[in-house]
């Protein structure tokens, strides 16, 4: 029985995969450092950027670009215990090349596709559900609380869509965001005091918003109420299309459920079975990997 630990970064994960493939090893568990491993005697694999990069370029030459995207999305899903399945998928991809993504009946391929679909689905959904608030300095600020670590993916969408606007998309749950200054994306963190105030007072009452912000929010709420056909009211359908966990930072007030003000009190609850610390220091690298693996340059193309 063997268990491996990696440092919680994408690089570290890829290094562990490269090691496993090189040694033809089949560890019973691969988990980020700090997770409570059921198996004792876990060996720590130190992240090695060069080795990770070699695996990436090997995958690039042998497989379709979509395969790399699936691997990255599985990492960003932040679910626990996906690593072994992903390793199996990577092995399969190296053996079969471009055909791997047509192996729908293979359990590892199916699991990876499902996980990747959840992440890309959330990126698409947030592309619609993100609500920007105009701040006093003209920046547009959008708080989100996604299930998966998708802020970079959402930012990529808005880089193409609103290139002439300064904006920040901020993950309130993971405590980091991406800032676009009309030229490039940079990771940002909110200062603690403001973070605490927003958690306490709610998003739309803090005094950092611009003068006209409340006006357009009121217009939007007005519109949202008027556009619904009373004879066809269907709150179940509404909740199915727009799950309630996304309602917190909306501007409109859907009627199909209780709307709760203010963000979730506990931070880092998403990391079930993992200490929140395992992702520390990974933000910049996530962003870099994002750029490296999806072909985005970070700046304007």
């Amino acid at each position: 029985m063997t268990a491996w630990e990696y440092d919680g970064t994408f690089e570290g994960l890829l290094t562990a995969f490269a090691a496993a493939i090189d040694m033809d090893a089949h560890p019973d568990d691969i988990a980020p450092e700090g997770a409570q491993l059921a198996l004792s005697g876990a060996g720590l694999i130190a992240g090695d950027p060069a080795r990770a990069e070699r695996l990436v370029s090997l995958l690039r030459t042998r497989c379709a670009p979509l395969t790399l995207k699936h691997i990255l999305y599985c990492f960003l899903s932040e679910t626990s215990g996906y690593e072994r399945t992903l390793l199996e998928y990577v092995r399969c991809a190296l053996a079969h090349g471009k055909r791997v993504d047509t192996f729908h009946a293979n359990d590892a391929v199916r699991a990876v596709h499902e996980l990747s679909r959840k992440v890309s689905g959330e990126i698409h959904r947030l592309g619609g559900l993100v609500r920007f608030r105009e701040l006093g300095d003209g920046t547009f600020w959008a708080p989100v609380e996604p299930d998966h670590n998708v802020v970079c993916g959402v930012a990529l969408h808005f880089m193409r869509r609103l290139p002439n606007q300064e904006w920040i998309i901020y993950d309130m749950r993971r405590g980091y965001g991406v800032r676009w200054d009309t030229h490039e994306c940079t990771p940002v963190t909110m200062n603690e005091e403001l973070d605490a105030r927003i958690r306490k007072e709610g998003v739309d009452t803090v005094d950092i918003l611009s003068a006209s912000e409340q006006k357009y929010q009121a217009y939007w709420r007005q519109y949202f109420e008027a556009i619904s056909i009373g004879a066809r009211t269907n709150p179940r359908l509404q909740r199915r299309n727009m799950p309630q966990r996304y309602w917190r930072y909306l501007v409109e007030r859907p009627a199909g459920g209780a709307w709760r003000a203010g963000p979730r009190a506990v931070r880092g609850t998403h990391l079930s079975g993992r200490s929140p610390g395992c992702l520390r220091g990974t933000r910049e690298r996530n962003l870099l990997y994002w750029k490296a693996n999806t072909g985005a340059t970070g700046g304007r193309e």
Partner: peptide, 17 residues
């Protein structure tokens, strides 16, 4: 400003679903 995405994007769902 803006772009049009080929798949289309829904931004909200009204009370009639």
């Amino acid at each position: 400003m803006g772009s049009a995405s080929c798949a289309g994007i829904c931004h909200s769902w009204s009370d009639d679903g």
